[in-house]
Design a binder for these strands. Structure first.
Lengths: 136, 136
DNA sequence: ATGGCTGCAAATAGTTTGCAATGAG
DNA sequence: CTCATTGCAAACTATTTGCAGCCAT
């Protein structure tokens, strides 16, 4: 993704494009992917970026609150940030923890419950847990 | 649920029915519900039970590993333990954090992706996020 | 100069763990 | 007696926060 495109996306979401935010966006938004805060920090440090842990967390939360990325909670241990905010679902390998996207057309609901009175559906999180197939 | 029934269920899952485990099971399994470890501990203490935090956590993990209860991760903050291990889904009120069951017949998948080669589906977690309906 | 942003370090929250004491069979 | 279980406190992990310094306008 071009540097200018990143700045544009930040701007479009009402986010001041500081140096750190650009760096963070450049890594996370470079592809449809899932990263944890620690992973992202490690990557940035490896890239020689000058960013602190606090800023990574603050920035990820800012991005998420502005709809630039989506937080995922597939296990209790940590939050994953998904650079793909389009509707989609996930496979979750229970053993390795690996997350894989499932495109919307691959899932079809022929029935969904109506939301309770006064409520509306804000989103649907579908996680298909996977384990090694038992032989036979 | 009768005391004897609780002991039976523990036994059926290969769990030694100690006093603490009975107390914990009595509270959590008394109805189909979702509780956090801290909630459960608070309830037990309020009931005058002699149980430590460590034992609550150890016991919940033990119960979960034996399939007596099901751990839920609907937000990153904490693990919820569901006394209902039958297949079902959840509504999640994003604002209040409230969890409500959605029975299996209320949801119907007309299409699901095949699991990747060598993998099989271990379970499907569906969380329907709810927010206050916007007026209009 | 002003207000937002950053970094450090300390604080928090949930959960796990080491280990000595306890207790049931 | 023995071995599993418990409780306490300390350790740990992920995340948040207070605050002083910095930076761009």
């Amino acid at each position: 993704m071009a540097t200018s495109e990143i700045a544009e996306r930040l701007f479009a979401h009402g986010i001041q494009p500081t140096a750190q935010r650009r760096r963070i966006a450049a890594v996370l938004l470079s592809a449809p992917q899932h990263m944890s805060a620690e992973q992202l920090l490690a990557q940035l440090v490896a890239d020689g970026a000058r960013v602190s842990k606090a800023t990574v967390y603050n920035t990820l939360n800012l991005f998420a609150s502005r709809g630039l990325i989506r937080p995922l909670t597939v296990d209790g241990a940590r939050v994953w940030f998904d650079s793909n905010v389009e509707a989609h679902y996930h496979f979750h390998d229970v053993e390795s923890g690996a997350l894989t996207d499932v495109a919307v057309p691959e899932v079809e609901f022929s029935r969904l419950p109506p939301p309770p009175a006064g409520m509306e559906v804000a989103g649907i999180d579908l996680v298909i847990r996977l384990r090694k197939a038992s032989p036979g």
